[in-house]
Amino acid sequence: MKKESWKELTLGTINLDAGNSVKNLTGTWRSGKKPQFIEERCIQCFFCWLYCPHFAIEVDGDKVRGINYDYCTGCGICSVECPTKEKAIVMVKEEVKLFEERAK
């Protein structure tokens, strides 16, 4: 990212580009584990969506579609809070990190 000089910055450093933090991929923080979504076990309770601190649960209408690994930090709250008997989100080992995968 190019750094702007003080002459180029907006007055009072007002940021007019609302919500531009989506370019910041927090998924690179994951270390060793990631959640895996198993659609057929999902009862669409949306608890994972509610409790995800990094907005990584992808929702389409009234269905949970999966996990956005660009933002998922692998905290595991979704897996713990999944209420189904056989959890629809399970934590699995992750060998290749996101930035390594992107570098290929």
């Binding site: 910041n24 927090t26 995800c52 933002y71």
Partner: peptide
């Protein structure tokens, strides 16, 4: 409040 914020892994604020 959108994704890409720098809060800790498992932080309770976004919820």
């Amino acid at each position: 409040l959108v994704a890409g914020h720098g809060m800790c892994i498992g932080c309770g604020i976004p919820l």
